[in-house]
């Protein structure tokens, strides 16, 4: 098949960006979307032109590095897949495909389709961990944990930190990302001691990074490649309110 890609090209954050059209011929439907861009880049390099920069690493949907808006949808047309697991069989011969970076104030553009998602790392640094140091852990089977809670924690922990939820949200909110980590850790007995400070610190960090408020539209859930559900957001709101109230009561006491 033959496709035309309209790609966002921008040399750096300072320069002006715009769409450039390229034709890619002889694409097999079994080719992945990023492999199709690889083919395009090989053509460009051979002409001494700079290739289209995009992020990717594992190419099997787990590292969270790839991040393209394809025809206006984060990670493209298919449900529950990343950009790298999108295959050309999802497109038709002769299609014009528009490719843009994930756009959000908190994800500044670096070059072409590459953006800076370090805000996510800083949110985790604010409280997305259990402060246990190496050597101090008790025997692993000391604390049993119901399979139900363990499975639920795993559902939340499956987040790959790609940022599609932010890119899809009209407010560029990071609620789904933050809620997934809060739920993962707060659901576990090991995470309980830091439950309150964790949720307060992570929500504060999220706001500070410039992510917007939840738009309650559910578009984050719709694009999440790992099927993280918005009910985790309700859980986070619950944990947040409880923690905030407790904090008030505590400070009133002192």
């Amino acid at each position: 098949m033959k496709v035309t890609v309209r790609v966002w090209r921008q040399k750096n954050p300072q320069s002006l960006g715009g769409f450039v059209e390229y034709e890619v011929k002889d694409v097999s439907p079994a080719t992945s979307f990023l492999e199709m861009l690889d083919v395009l880049n090989e053509q460009l390099i051979k002409q001494s032109k700079e290739p289209v920069h995009f992020d990717s690493d594992c190419r099997e949907g787990i590292c969270g590095m790839c991040s393209c808006m394809i025809n206006g949808e984060a990670h493209g047309p298919e449900n529950k897949v990343t950009t790298c697991q999108t295959y050309m069989r999802s497109f038709k011969d002769g299609d014009v495909i528009t490719v843009e970076p994930f756009r959000a104030k908190a994800f500044p553009l670096v070059k072409d389709l590459v953006v800076d998602r370090s805000a996510f790392d800083r949110i985790i640094q604010a409280g997305g961990f259990i402060s246990v140091t190496a050597g101090s852990a008790p025997e692993a089977n000391t604390v049993p944990l119901s399979k139900y809670h363990s499975d639920l924690a795993m559902d939340a922990a499956a987040c790959i930190g790609c940022g599609a939820c932010v890119a899809a949200c009209k407010n560029a909110s990071a609620n789904l990302f933050v809620a997934a980590k809060v739920a993962h850790l707060n659901l576990l007995p090991q995470g309980a001691p830091e439950k309150d400070p964790r949720v307060l610190a992570m929500v504060e960090a999220m706001t500070k990074e410039g992510f917007g408020a939840c738009s309650v539209s559910g578009s984050c859930e719709a694009v999440c490649p790992k099927g993280i559900v918005t009910s985790f957001i309700s859980r986070m709101n619950h944990d947040f309110l409880t923690a905030a109230l407790k904090l008030r009561v505590h400070s009133a006491r002192v």
Binding site: V132, A134, A137, P138, V143, D151, A153, H184, L188, Q190
Partner: peptide, 8 residues
């Protein structure tokens, strides 16, 4: 160590 860190 992993269980204490919250690995599910």
């Amino acid at each position: 160590q992993a269980v204490a860190q919250g690995v599910p």
